[in-house]
Design a protein around this nucleic acid. Sequence first.
DNA 1: AACAATTTAATTGTATACAATATTCTGAAA
DNA 2: TTTCAGAATATTGTATACAATTAAATTGTT
Lengths: 157, 157
Amino acid sequence: MPKVPPVLLDQQLCFSIYSASKKFNHFYQSALAPFSLTYPQYIAMLVLWEDAPLTVHQLGERLELDSGTLTPLLKRLEKQGWVSRVRSQTDERQVLIHLTEMATAKREEVYSRIGQCQTLLGMSDEEIDETMAELATVKSQLDNVSRQRLITKNIDN
Amino acid sequence: MPKVPPVLLDQQLCFSIYSASKKFNHFYQSALAPFSLTYPQYIAMLVLWEDAPLTVHQLGERLELDSGTLTPLLKRLEKQGWVSRVRSQTDERQVLIHLTEMATAKREEVYSRIGQCQTLLGMSDEEIDETMAELATVKSQLDNVSRQRLITKNIDN
DNA sequence: AACAATTTAATTGTATACAATATTCTGAAA
DNA sequence: TTTCAGAATATTGTATACAATTAAATTGTT
């Protein structure tokens, strides 16, 4: 009985990405340890520093996370003094996430830490751009597939 | 007071990778739904199909996961009939993960599903190889940084 | 105005991740 | 052979992720 050739883990693009993601996560987590920020908390802060205040929904669109993840994450950020969560007056369904004074005060310090991380990583801007371009291709292909399957599903039903 | 230029989330390599990883995860999770395998369960099965039986430790080295993640994951795989967990006779610290008959029987079916996924993704082998090469660079840089910081830490203490 | 459909957050339940600790076992040194 | 350092796995605690549901508020339509 001939053995089927195995699907090798190390040849799977998905595993390359999964593994790199975990390593990056770990790298930033330890770099940001002085601020007690986890990686997802850090990217939430990045978006808020870009453009606060934002509703939970708007933040979720940028981060590609839903309220199931964000609500508890934001409560933790609030407890640690980075943000305040305020029900909108004009639309009481919405919760606006504001930066605290501490968050504004620490912005540059965190930015500088990120700069150090990028230096430590030691990749040229060109290399980084190229890698991000490749990943953009992967993501757009994955989005296509989801859309295809959605259409198929609609036709099927 | 001049505003510091923001660190833009969308220009962060880490976020590209993080986001791609989640999309891939989701893609495989739905592709493998007929088998009730999550993505981490699937990659564990891939390694076991390559080379079972393996100890928890050996599996963890391949997947870059520790017993804190693997023990409960493997218990779930066992409950669903994919693997059996057997204390080693020669070294009672070790637990050997064996494939069940069901796992062996379903191997080709899962492989074929993976093949379909790769087709759906619609990327050429060259594109995939290139992306994986870029990611290998990123990972080796991240490993270097960790090693550097380890040495620094040892010198510091 | 009345009310169904939609939107927004929060909640619930399941499954990773991983640091830190505990437990058990093995092998080597005294 | 006793002891003890190290190894292998399990457990505990915290923090994501995300599907599915709930609850409250808003909007569109009559």
